[in-house]
Design a protein around this nucleic acid. Sequence first.
DNA 1: CTGAAAGCGCTTACAG
DNA 2: CTGAAAGCGCTTACAG
Lengths: 369, 369
Amino acid sequence: MHLTPSGCLPTKHAAAPRTLAVKKKTVRVITSTAEFARYVGLARTTVSRVLNGQPGLKAKTIDRVQRAMDETGFTPNAYAIRLKGKGTATIGICMEDLLTPTAVKKLAALQRVFRTAHYTSLIEVLEPGGSRQLIRHFLSMRVEAVVFIGHFPVEELTQRIAELNASATPHVVIDHVGIPNAHSVTLDRAHGMVDVVDHLVDQGHRTFGLLGISARLHGRLGRMHGIMQALEKHGLPFAQSTRSLDHLHVRENDFEYGRILAASFATLKDRPTAFLALNDEIAIGAMHGLQAAGLDIPGDAAVVGFNNQEICAMTRPTLTSIDQQIGETIRVGAEVLLGQIGQPPRAKPILRTIEPRLIVRQSTDPKLA
Amino acid sequence: MHLTPSGCLPTKHAAAPRTLAVKKKTVRVITSTAEFARYVGLARTTVSRVLNGQPGLKAKTIDRVQRAMDETGFTPNAYAIRLKGKGTATIGICMEDLLTPTAVKKLAALQRVFRTAHYTSLIEVLEPGGSRQLIRHFLSMRVEAVVFIGHFPVEELTQRIAELNASATPHVVIDHVGIPNAHSVTLDRAHGMVDVVDHLVDQGHRTFGLLGISARLHGRLGRMHGIMQALEKHGLPFAQSTRSLDHLHVRENDFEYGRILAASFATLKDRPTAFLALNDEIAIGAMHGLQAAGLDIPGDAAVVGFNNQEICAMTRPTLTSIDQQIGETIRVGAEVLLGQIGQPPRAKPILRTIEPRLIVRQSTDPKLA
DNA sequence: CTGAAAGCGCTTACAG
DNA sequence: CTGAAAGCGCTTACAG
């Protein structure tokens, strides 16, 4: 999105009168209620009433207008309506990208909820460093609320939330903790990892390879926190029980990243027996890499993914994973957001937590093979 | 999206004055250039000039305005700008859904191209039967062009294209042939299937199971056309060489659909030796189903997917597939669309064809195992 | 740089 | 139902 200094969209070209040649004669496209009213033979006021479904109109009049709309294809100018208007019924959705399947799933679900609640979604993808312009664009479009989906630079997002708060625009941050004063809905990843570790320890595992998982972000609700907590519970010393090779490789394509991490792990003499991956893609890549090294899954190595995508049921072996409960996340997210609209700003940030669910499959349980 | 009879968005509530309590005193959010100009101590005209980056302004003045914008968070009302304005620099993108990975990839690529060209994308997902309202919404937002991505009911789409043509709004249909008077960019699926069949015949296959592929749609550029053409070329009688069990099962989840089709095929005594799937998901499900029945891939059965998603390199065996050339598709699509803006309407529909690329992997070539 | 003014396309009382 | 009018928040000549 390109914006002028004002945060608004640039104009592309002078508005040529929109005409269209039809069968040798030029038909002017009707672009205003004034013109349209003249065409129908009614007053502008009356047309406006019909368009807005106001009461006290004869069925005949409504019909006349409807028919004329079909004939001419006239649509009232939304910009004029909303200028005059009482709210835009629009919600801005800021996406980190459109390439993460689970993020897109959330977007799709959210858009559906908003539509049901009679809101239009204004969907934008954040360009690196473009968050200020993006929020200015949303504000200039007078959105009634803003949702953030995905992962953003903490400082930038913090700034943007402050701006939204300053303009009394409601917001919710989906799945991104650690933003001061932000209302958010977050998956309790820590809890998910506790379930995973419990399950793996139960299967006899004592050493864990971490694929793409680190403590950098997240804090209390983060995965690392959960892993440490669970290991402690089982009396396993953290430093000896876990191993990461993330420093060796660059993460571009997740599948490939998982594969190459696994290949490196396969060369270790004291190789961990269980692997926890940041997501399903990395886990699938890791299975590929481990198997290519001649290892059996789960016999020689157990693997756990994250997100429980449909593909998990179709790999060989099928992949144990953690379900994000996207439906629930979006339900709560929408509730938090819509609850703010029309209300006075909250003093305290709202923080809602979603509990994930472990789905055990063959990659960690030999009995299921 | 909910629309009133006028095709516009309903109003949600009366616009309460947006105020915000900050440190005990109530700060009014500035919502107009008039207010803002008063705040800065400049004329509205001057402020407007600064916001639009017009020449002939002192650096000092520009600075003052910039600073005041940062202080107040003021954003000019986009609805007023565009009402007055010369074009909206907005393009409507109509998606069939947000759940098909390749469709979302196209969306992401297209949005990026549009942004680079200084257009904002208005992304909407079509609800069943909601196409008329959707297009009315786009027209009411005065989009400068419309893109359709995905598959739509032919008759509905034909109607919508006619409406867009009637209002002189440019459009392009990505990957959906057979719409009269529609400008479109389409993958030559027939060509793709010719390549597949050539490859498989080369590998010694003479019988082909079709998974989800039928002749219902598409015509000349369709897959079935390509399959028939290639079989004829190799002197293989079509009816004897192909087999479909699509009538036996319901297609909901594609992975599962592929699995269950394959399970049925596995029970046949005269089972085909090669399988062509509608997409990668069905192909992966089919591999799962065939392997579960004890068959070796590609030894007992070859499998080919469609779309060449990243996962194809991570299955066991890796999956031969056809790459859609999404980058090229979107490049051409944007070219076709942007080329129409500001030009007189075309008499003849534009039809551009994209050539797919066969990517051979282990699932069809034992030498790669 | 300022200020007054017209106009974009609507909605909404208001008087008939 | 009609008609005249005010106003939403901008932009853009125009005269100073």
